[in-house]
């Protein structure tokens, strides 16, 4: 159980819980980010904040402070690190 904000760029996680009371989380749920969904932290912005996360075939920005309360499960069935590019 880790906050989404602590994922490394390229790391995957499965959403365990969010906070439906918050407006941001309501937006994310409308976009399809629901518990059980696998997501990936694609990158951090050059200044460290916001984050770009990928789920359901779309990339969405999210501020660090908002990502703190999204709890993800870095479970065995999620790739822990993005497979290194075979250059």
């Amino acid at each position: 159980m880790t906050p989404l904000s602590q994922l490394l760029p390229g790391q995957y996680g499965k959403l365990a819980s969010l906070n439906p009371e918050r407006a941001v989380d309501q937006r994310l749920m409308a976009l399809g980010l629901l518990p059980g969904m696998v997501l990936k932290l694609v990158r951090r912005a050059p200044l460290g904040d916001p984050l770009a996360i990928e789920f359901g075939g779309q990339v969405v920005s999210l501020r660090l402070a908002e990502a703190e309360s999204l709890i993800v499960d870095v479970a065995a069935d999620c790739p822990v690190q993005r497979p290194k590019k075979s250059s």
Partner: peptide, 9 residues
Amino acid sequence: KPQPFVLEL
């Protein structure tokens, strides 16, 4: 208040 920033890229 700090604003959420959920923008699709």
